[in-house]
Structure formats: structure tokens, C-alpha cells
Design a protein around this nucleic acid. Structure first.
Lengths: 320, 320
DNA sequence: TTGAAAGCGCTAACAA
DNA sequence: TTGTTAGCGCTTTCAA
């Protein structure tokens, strides 16, 4: 229709180099008038690329429901990929059959790479992915695979330190902590950071394990209160658990922050709307997503990439 | 490698009809030994299908973060599609530029259909989609396009009626309501259901508008208390807003449910973990997702489909 | 700067 | 039941 060959049109579609301005104009007009759009299947068939990236959620279903972090990560990733004209293909990989499906899918070249979210240490998918030579970037340290799988993470350990130091600076002396699951990087590193400040031989009684759910936070807080009736602060490894802890403290008649100061982690939505509003560590999840996409693209291009650790930021509200 | 032609292999790949068992065995062995997988781009190029479905979220970003319903819907849809060997491609369409991208993408045949989630009345994407002849199924009544776009929804109106009747049965006589945004089907229909029970000429003072956020629920509840100091129940159109309302009532010194009974809607996670646990209407979001996928597949196959309205269920906890 | 031609890996019609 | 063949719509040499 523009009176030129397919080859010339293709050149215009792919940057417009080595095309005369006359041809360029004619082609663009034809494209506009016909509403032409390239057929991705045809293009990807010949270029051997997929034009999409899998967002693999390796986590039991319930978590996704409750944890607002996932949603933020998902949205930010979708957006960062869209800017590169890549599509995000969502995949669950919690159950073994789902994992198989994901592996089959990615191995057959249906995606150019993988954003791997929320892996527990020992998650079999990491081994399998490592063997399959597909570009992968993890969100958070992939425990046990730190050197093989590049990752983007918030500085959990330093963030925890900062929060506990903040509690110390407030005058708190009997500081407890509610951890995340200890097979997750966040669970582990935030506990490490806590120990860094309160001392290596931290009082075991002041450590309770949670599971990143609100109810888990309640259970852990009850536990903590029972074992340490005189505690004056608690560092909670996620805002959602902190919200649960807040409810327990209120029921126990402890004022926050006067009797017990509470510090959270994430700066998720719940932090601002809890009662009292939570002092917490902000994780830059939008930047995490953007960096993950950047690393993945480099990886796809065959470049060597390192991991990225992003700083966290103390957000002071009323709870501490 | 199996000693047969590509045509025969293709037949095996697509159901194995008209293939001798000897050939079938040889081909399957070859497939197994070589780890062969079909190239989707090539297949889709010739079959003119995409093998994927867009999950289009037509909603300002913040909502996604806070509303747990989206996550449930997303996960359930991913799973229902996976069972049909279809991929879910996630797309945001809140901003005009994002809408354009989505439209360009779907019009060029990159997806076989669209799951449209969370549309406000007057959302321009509905008009544009309607014109573009791509199969679309909406989640919740697409206000203003009910006859053109098939949808799957929970029975909001009847659900609201049931809840308000429940409050009446408890002995409540001054029942207020906090609505969702009135340009959304949930906002509108749940208010209708409320009016169905309390009477068509409902006391305007007892109606406050919310926006499905927790903070919106707080603001509305404050409002309601101020205008109706003696109310004895409130039906809140979402659990998240109800959680906000609960916090306000507590601060105001009202006991729930003794002084004020509170009924929510959704039966999302927050319902079980609020204080006190919420009595609410369960929306079968997993079934909603499954039905949406079913309708969409029928639509893609060229069948005529109707809309589906699924029943809700009263979940009685402590708040009412 | 352009056009011609080959071919990406597959399905589907047809003939055998 | 099978093999042959003709494309699907694009990119990418290569020659001009």
C-alpha cells in the first residue's frame, strides 16, 4: 500500500534506519490509515523471543491474599515491563503440579525471563530454575542460591537495626521481636538486625516467630506478653503482624507507645491506618520492581549482573 | 526422529486422532527423549490464536493495593486459565496512556479475550472495548453496558437485603449504611438492597458514602455517628470499610454488637481478624473467576453467552 | 537505500 | 492412517 517492499516496512518497524524519508512518510501514513499492527507471533517466531516475562509466585495461595506487598510488586512490575513493551504473564507455583507447569512453560521458551517472587529457603523451584538456563531474577535473597540467582532486596538487616536503634533511642530497654518465617530472607535478616543491636546473646524469651499474617502476629504477641510481662517495646517484622500485635496489646490494657512501643516493617497500607498509626521501615517496593526488571533485561541481553540491595527508610508515626 | 512426517507429529500434538498406535508410541518416545515442546509462536501464528487472556485492571492503582478482592480474583483467574492452557497477561488500564496501550495490544490480536475487572460507570474503556470486537467478560455489572458486555457478579442486591434483614432480626431499628462508590455496581446495588429492606423512603441521614478504603470507612462512620447519635446498626458495603468503622465505634465508646451491630460485605481476610470478628456476606470470588473464564472461552468460540449472577452467603461472626 | 528471497516452526487441507 | 504441501506474517540476509 505504501508502494514499498515488506523489507522496507520491516525496517521502519524496527527503528527506521536505512530508510529514505519519503519511504518512511509513506509507510507511516499507510500504517496510520490501515491501523496496522505487527503480529507478535510472527515476529517472535522469527526473532526467537517471547516478548513476555513470567511473574512466578512461589507461595501458598493464602499469602497472596493477605500480604499487600505482593500487589505493589505486581503492579510496579507490570508497569516497568510495559515500558519496555514486555508483557507480564502471571503464574502460580505453590503446588508441585503448578511448579511443573511453570517449568515446562519457561523451558519451552514461552517467556524471555522470570521474576521470581517470595521463595522460601529450600523451595525446589530454585534448583530447577537454576538448571534450566532461563534468565531469573529473584525478589529478596534466594536463600541457598544467592550466588546463582541475582536478586533485588531491601536492606532487611540494616532496616531492622535502624528500627531497633530507634526503639533504644526512645529509652526502651526490654525490646522483644516478632520475626517472619525463618526460612524467608525477611524473617532471617530482620532477626539478625535485631540481634545486631540488642546483642548477640539476645534473650531467647524475647523472640517469637510469626508467619507474616495478622493472626500470626496476635499469637506471637500473646506469647511474648506471657513470657515477658515487663517488656517495653517490640519490633515486628511486618506491618500486618504488627497490626495483630497492636490489637493484643490493646486488649491487654497496654498503651502504645507509652507502655509498649511497637515498630513495624514494610510501610504497607495497614501501617497508616492502624490504631495507633505504625512507626515502620519503608521498603521501596516500586524501586525493587523496577530494578528487578532492569536486571532481568540485562540478563536476557547476556550481560553479567550483580544483585541489588536497596536502602530502607524509617517512617515515624505514633506507635514508637 | 520417530521416522514419521511432521504432519503425523502435529496430529499427535493435537489430540492424536487418526494416528496408528505404532506411530503414536514412536512419536511419544521421541518427544520424551528429546524433551521436545511445541513452539507457541509458530502454532499461534498459523492458528491465529494468542493462547493468552488479558486481565485488565481498570482501576486507580491504590485500590489494588488495599483491596484483597483483587488478589483473590487474580489468583483464581490465573488458575482457571491455566487449566485450559491459557496464560493470564496482567495489564493496568487506569491512566489514559495505559488504556491506549491495552487497546492497541488487544486489537492487534495479542490476546484471545479480556477479563475486565473493576470498572466504574462511565469508564471509557468499556466503550472502546465494545467497539473493538474482542471477547470481553466483566467482573461485576458493567454499568451502562450490561447488555453489551457479559458479566459475572455476586448478587449484591440480594446479599445486602439478607444482611439488613439479619440486622432487623437482631432487633435493630435504626440501621444506617456506608455505601461503596456510587459509580460502581457494588456501591449502587448494595445500597439498593439496603433500601429494599428499610423502605424506599430511607432516611437520607442514615446513608454515608465510602470509597472501599479503610479510611473511607472511618470518615463515613464518624459522619454517621454525628448525624445519628442513636443508631443501633450499620451495614457497611465492604469489610475493609467495616474495619475502619469498627475502629471509630471503639474510639467513640460504642460496644459492638451490643450498642451498634456492624455488618460487612465480602468476607475477605480482614473480616475474620477484625476486632470483633465481622459478620459479613461472603462473595464466592473463586467461582466468579471460574465463571468468567468459562464465559470468555464460550465467547471466544463464537457462542452466545449470558451473564451470571452468583448467590452470596451470610457469615455470622461476632459483630452482628 | 531498497527489493527479493529464504525461512522461523507449526497446522491443515489434500491426496494417497 | 499417512505424507506432502502451502502458507501463517514477520525479520534478515544478500544483491542490487
Amino acid at each position: 500500500m505504501a508502494g514499498v517492499s515488506r523489507g522496507t516496512v520491516s525496517r521502519v518497524l524496527n527503528g527506521g534506519h536505512y530508510v529514505s524519508s519519503a519511504a518512511l512518510a509513506a509507510i507511516n501514513r499507510a500504517i496510520f490509515e490501515t491501523g496496522y499492527v505487527v503480529n507478535r507471533n510472527a515476529r517472535n517466531l522469527v526473532t526467537q523471543r517471547a516478548g513476555s516475562v513470567a511473574f512466578v509466585l512461589s507461595e501458598p495461595q493464602e499469602k497472596l491474599f493477605e500480604d499487600p506487598n505482593f500487589s505493589v510488586l505486581l503492579r510496579s512490575s507490570t508497569q516497568a515491563l510495559a515500558e519496555q513493551d514486555l508483557q507480564l504473564v502471571m503464574m502460580n507455583a505453590a503446588r508441585p503440579d503448578e511448579r511443573d507447569r511453570v517449568l515446562r512453560y519457561v523451558r519451552s521458551g514461552h517467556v524471555d525471563g522470570i521474576l521470581l517472587v517470595s521463595t522460601h529457603g529450600g523451595d525446589p523451584i530454585m534448583n530447577q530454575l537454576e538448571r534450566s538456563a532461563v534468565p531469573v531474577v529473584a525478589c529478596g535473597k534466594p536463600l541457598g542460591h544467592e550466588s546463582a540467582i541475582p536478586y533485588v532486596a531491601a536492606d532487611d538487616r540494616e532496616g531492622a537495626r535502624q528500627m531497633v536503634r530507634h526503639l533504644v533511642a526512645r529509652g526502651c530497654r526490654r525490646i522483644a521481636t516478632i520475626t517472619g518465617p525463618l526460612d524467608t530472607p525477611g524473617g532471617l535478616e530482620r532477626l539478625e538486625g535485631y540481634c545486631d543491636v540488642v546483642g548477640r546473646r539476645a534473650n531467647k524469651r524475647r523472640i517469637a516467630n510469626g508467619d507474616y499474617t495478622r493472626r500470626g502476629g496476635e499469637v506471637a504477641m500473646n506469647d511474648l506478653l506471657e513470657r515477658n510481662p515487663n517488656l517495653d517495646a517490640v519490633f515486628v517484622a511486618s506491618d500486618l503482624m504488627a497490626a495483630g500485635a497492636l490489637a493484643v496489646l490493646r486488649r491487654a490494657g497496654r498503651r502504645v507507645p507509652e507502655d509498649v512501643a511497637v515498630g513495624g516493617f514494610d510501610d504497607s497500607r495497614v501501617a497508616a491506618s492502624s490504631d495507633p498509626p505504625l512507626t515502620t521501615m519503608r521498603q521501596p517496593l516500586d524501586r525493587v520492581a523496577a530494578e528487578m526488571v532492569r536486571l532481568l533485561l540485562d540478563l536476557i541481553d547476556g550481560k553479567d549482573v550483580g544483585s541489588v540491595v536497596l536502602p530502607t527508610e524509617l517512617v515515624t508515626r505514633d506507635s514508637a
